[in-house]
């Protein structure tokens, strides 16, 4: 039986379609390249590789070292295994770890509360129609772009108990001179004050951005309804600033828990460990006492503490949204 021209054409088309389908299903290079996900992975691969090499692997290595005793002079392969001993020592036997943890929390609470509050207040003031608004914004932001080392050196002299500017002002006001950084009780508040002064401009800018995103119509409507300044702030500004507030509090907490340079220059952790913070203690343990195992255990504990605090903050602030 002879095939007609039409039948032959139909069979040829069918065979071509089947070949095309097979080619489509076959796991060849073209097939892989056509898949969107592969291309996506290719685009993010450099970033993933960067994270893997500079974040994930060091993190895993930090955990590994924290389970060993290591002074960085012996080869990595010959570190004696200590299990959880470094953690046990820090949590149960090391009073300085507990003190530096308490100091760090004190610093974080003081710095976060004050710089957030002051940042918001300055932002509210500079969001209104004051004269030379841009100039004032720049003035408040200036400390943030100044090196914290330079700031610490200048403030160490301002705080100097004998010839510092602050005691000069107190003297002019008829008030008794203070020891500031040379006093166990005043050193931490003094350091917090410098940290707040340094960072308030940055948080002011963040709050200003948040304030400028609030539609003006809401305030106009509230005014028409007879809402006063406080009511407008309480029921419009504050609720709509919550995403900014969440960001400011979380970021500020993370920065505060890692404070190092300011205390290192201003007080070196003194007097009598009154301003010694976790990161400063970690630095000394690692690079002055060459106890890398213990220092990395501190780093892991600080990471866990930071992680938990951040989760709690996110939970609390989101719940109220």
């Amino acid at each position: 039986m002879k095939q007609t021209e039409a039948e032959r054409t139909g069979m040829a088309l069918k065979a071509g379609a089947e070949r095309a389908l097979r080619a489509e299903r076959a796991p060849g290079l073209r097939w892989w390249l056509r898949r969107r996900s592969v291309v996506g992975y290719a685009f993010v691969a450099p970033a993933l590789a960067f994270l893997l090499v500079f974040a994930f692997l060091p993190f895993v290595f930090t955990i590994y070292v924290s389970l060993h005793e290591w002074n960085m002079l012996t080869p990595v392969t010959s570190m004696p295994f200590r299990g959880l001993e470094n953690y046990r020592y820090l949590l149960l036997d090391d009073p300085l770890f507990r003190q530096t943890f308490a100091n760090t929390v004190t610093f974080a609470v003081g710095n976060v509360a004050l710089s957030t509050l002051l940042g918001l207040m300055v932002a509210l003031a500079l969001n209104s129609r004051v004269r030379f608004r841009t100039f004032w914004r720049a003035i408040y932001f200036l400390p943030y772009v100044t090196s914290s080392v330079a700031i610490a050196i200048v403030w160490a002299n301002i705080y100097n108990a004998n010839y510092g500017l602050l005691n000069g002002i107190l003297e002019m006001l008829g008030l008794p001179p203070q020891r500031f950084l040379a006093s166990v009780s005043q050193a931490m508040p003094s350091v917090i004050a410098v940290a707040v002064w340094h960072s308030v401009g940055y948080f002011m800018i963040l709050f200003l951005a948040g304030l400028q995103n609030i539609p003006g119509e809401l305030y106009d409507a509230a005014k028409v309804d007879g809402a006063g300044d406080w009511q407008r702030f309480r029921f419009i500004t504050l609720p709509l600033l919550k995403p900014t507030m969440l960001f400011v509090v979380v970021v500020n907490t993370l920065i505060s828990l890692q404070v190092f340079d300011l205390v290192f220059i201003l007080t070196n952790g003194g007097p009598v460990n009154a301003t010694n913070t976790l990161v400063l203690y970690m630095y000394r343990t690692a690079f002055e006492f060459t106890r890398m195992g213990r220092a990395t255990a501190m780093a892991i504990l600080l990471f866990l503490i930071t992680f938990v605090i951040t989760l709690v903050q996110l939970h609390l602030l989101r719940e109220r949204r």
Partner: peptide, 21 residues
């Protein structure tokens, strides 16, 4: 001895011996 003064090398403060104080 007044602890408000800093000896040579004290952290974060001017050296008061060098300043003649």
């Amino acid at each position: 001895a007044d602890l408000g003064f800093a000896g040579p090398g004290s952290s974060g403060a001017q050296d008061d011996f060098l300043a003649g104080r």
